[in-house]
């Protein structure tokens, strides 16, 4: 299971890096989202995988999952959305100002 999770995180990261480096802003947004998934899952599994009880302090509950990574990731997910939105707005603004949806100036995008 650990191996599977690790490979999954690695794949998401690799895909994210690749897309973030593409010339068009939409791809960058996609890549950014992928990296967010990867990082969120990576931080989340820092709580380790072997505890099956949600971190609810209910009667009879034992071996609670680690609540701290969950709390960190919860806000990270929400802020990730904020950043994605900002990135989208930025690329739309750039499109409106320059008429192009590439990340870099035209000179460089063609490389």
């Amino acid at each position: 299971m650990e191996i599977l999770v690790s490979i999954g995180v690695g794949l998401l990261f690799a895909g994210g890096i690749f897309l973030v480096l593409r010339p068009r802003s939409f791809s960058v947004v996609l890549g950014f989202t992928l990296i967010s998934y990867a990082v969120n899952i990576l931080v989340f599994v820092a709580g380790l995988l072997d505890r099956d009880t949600p971190p609810l302090f209910l009667p009879g509950a034992a071996r609670l999952a680690d609540p701290l990574p969950q709390a960190l990731v919860l806000t990270a997910i929400v802020i990730g959305f904020g950043m994605t939105a900002y990135l989208v707005a930025l690329s739309l603004r750039s499109l409106g100002e320059h008429g192009t949806d590439t990340v870099d100036s035209d000179r460089d995008a063609g490389e």
Binding site: V5, S6, G10, F13, A14
Partner: peptide, 17 residues
């Protein structure tokens, strides 16, 4: 770059887990 970064993250994740 992506392959190296992804592999690194996967190894890191595995080492941590």
């Amino acid at each position: 770059l992506a392959a190296v970064g992804g592999t690194g993250t996967a190894l890191l994740c595995y080492a941590m887990l």
